[in-house]
Design a protein around this nucleic acid. Sequence first.
DNA 1: TGTCATGTAACGTATCAAGTTACATGAACG
DNA 2: CGTTCATGTAACTTGATACGTTACATGACA
Lengths: 157, 157
Amino acid sequence: MRRDSRLSGVLHVLLHMAQREGAWTSEEMAKAMDTNPVVIRRIMAGLRDHGYLRSEKGHGGGWTFACDLDKVTLRDIYTALGEPTLLAIGNRTDMPGCVVEAAVNAALGTSFDEAEQFLLARFGVVTLAMLATDVGRRMKAHHPKHKGHKKAHGEHA
Amino acid sequence: MRRDSRLSGVLHVLLHMAQREGAWTSEEMAKAMDTNPVVIRRIMAGLRDHGYLRSEKGHGGGWTFACDLDKVTLRDIYTALGEPTLLAIGNRTDMPGCVVEAAVNAALGTSFDEAEQFLLARFGVVTLAMLATDVGRRMKAHHPKHKGHKKAHGEHA
DNA sequence: TGTCATGTAACGTATCAAGTTACATGAACG
DNA sequence: CGTTCATGTAACTTGATACGTTACATGACA
């Protein structure tokens, strides 16, 4: 477990959802992602709370979109995940009064902040719809004969 | 221990070294950094191996610069530390053949790579000398009366 | 030779994502 | 109804890693 892959994971799930009509169960998603249903529900909970998804219990239950894929950006998803830490490096704890530390923190901190803003800005201009379109393009390139298949027949593995 | 602060820490040490002539012992540095001498030696080892520092044992031993502060950038230091991971988030393990995952990894991966390059580029234009100058500037501003003091009398805390 | 300093291995601690187990809640089917 | 299916969530386990600490070897200088 080196790097937090929740954003990557949840996008993977969402794009799979976009490939098929109807509700998806955590079980199905977990199978497609080679992980555990609880992990799926955990990373999806924030998206439900933010109104991007709906989840229903019981027979025929599962997860469905509650938003327009064209209106939701990767940054929205990132926020819904709880804004996990972006950078793996950072400043030491502030030692108030240490001029040296202040200088180091100022120099590095500015770069860190800018790098984070850079990433968030990138996330902000990519919508789920754009990613879904890219998936479609890649599927065509991969299976030129099946131009519009809808069954998601084991496409994940 | 949330974020890796070795770069921040080693810079802190180096700038303290730049404030005073002569060798610094790990013990002194550890005191200035409120940490353990072994931690200091650990993060400094790479810099010694890369020729930026010299370390000597025994009486009068300790750490001294073996480079021109004007020629060494933060990126050089980062490299000497072993190029620790910069980003805290990343892609899921590749599932070869999954078009969806490929699309996600491509979209996120590009942003991740660019953010890393951005940070490294920033590090590449900042030299140790520039930081040392900034420390001097801050010291003047903080103690306007002592215009050129050299004893580093408890400046750290 | 004794002291001081680095070099390094080994172990302990804290944190956090991810995986797992267990059980409660609630909806739909029979 | 009550059985089945699905989510909701708490609690625990696992793995990785930075940081802290102890212990001891190596080597230099008085």
